[in-house]
Design a binder for these strands. Structure first.
Length: 108
DNA sequence: AGCCTGACAGATA
DNA sequence: GTATCTGCCAGGC
């Protein structure tokens, strides 16, 4: 097949790639939506967000945050509890993860 | 087809 | 620091 192979790959394949990676994020570490897309070399941050919105409950979803280290309003409470439990650097005042201290690059 | 929405992100003011 | 705008791309109507 000529070119258009590396396209936005939607569908179950992309979903599984995302969920699979999120499951590999170590405790006390996080990745941003953009990091996930970049690491997989597929899709965009926005698409990753769409997957999380639909299937996030199946994985440690609090380990994927936006570029500011935050999650939408309705999830912050649950997320905070998990950060506290696993020792993720979390700013309770601003309700956001301090990415500088726990961003995961995919390596171990 | 068009228009809007969304667990996003970078640039700019 | 916050607010806005633009680009992004899939899905729903």
């Amino acid at each position: 097949m000529p070119d258009s192979v590396h396209r936005s790959d939607d569908t179950p394949a992309f979903v599984q790639l995302v969920l699979g990676l999120v499951r590999r994020i170590p405790a006390a570490k996080v990745m941003t939506y953009g990091d996930v897309a970049e690491f997989l070399e597929r899709g965009t941050a926005r698409q990753v967000g769409a997957v999380m919105a639909g299937y996030g409950s199946e994985v440690p979803w609090w380990r994927v945050v936006n570029a500011s280290g935050r999650l939408p309003e309705h999830l912050r409470g649950e997320a905070a509890a998990n950060y506290l439990a696993e020792g993720t650097p979390y700013d309770l005042e601003r309700e956001k993860v301090r990415l500088a201290g726990c961003r995961w690059d995919g390596s171990r």
